[in-house]
Simulated scan of single mutants.
Amino acid sequence: MALSYRSRKRLALLILVIGMPLYVVVAVNVVDWANARFGRLPILAELAVFIGLGLMWALPFRRIFRGIGQPDPDQPQDKNE
């Protein structure tokens, strides 16, 4: 079942407003836990971990975000514009 453009737009907004901040909090807590458990990583390794975590959240949602910035394809086009 494919989501409509409007549903995908609302879901993308929900993910960005609620899901993204929650994911950031979880990612920072995981890195802090790893620092406390195993000691601080070198700065480049820590940077790599944060970049990896930053990319990892978007992979499951790429189909939802694809085409959101474009005009609604379901709406009829006005040829006078």
Rank of each mutant, 00 (worst) to 15 (best):
A2Q: 05
A2N: 06
L3N: 11
S4N: 00
Y5C: 05
R8N: 05
R8Q: 09
R10F: 14
R10N: 15
L13T: 15
L14I: 08
L16Q: 15
M20I: 14
P21Y: 11
P21K: 07
Y23M: 08
V25F: 07
V25S: 04
V26P: 04
V28E: 10
N29C: 09
N29A: 15
V30R: 13
V30D: 02
V30C: 10
V30A: 14
V31T: 03
V31A: 10
W33A: 13
A34M: 13
A34P: 04
A36Y: 15
A36Q: 10
A36C: 06
A36E: 15
R37S: 14
R37V: 13
R37L: 13
R37Q: 09
F38H: 05
F38I: 09
G39L: 03
G39S: 07
L41Q: 14
P42A: 07
I43L: 06
A45F: 02
A45V: 09
E46G: 05
E46F: 01
E46Q: 06
A48K: 09
F50A: 03
I51R: 00
G52A: 12
G52S: 13
L53V: 00
G54R: 00
G54Q: 02
L55Y: 12
M56Q: 14
W57D: 07
A58F: 11
A58H: 07
L59A: 10
P60R: 03
I64N: 06
I64V: 15
F65L: 01
R66P: 01
R66Y: 05
I68H: 05
G69E: 02
G69V: 14
Q70R: 08
P73K: 06
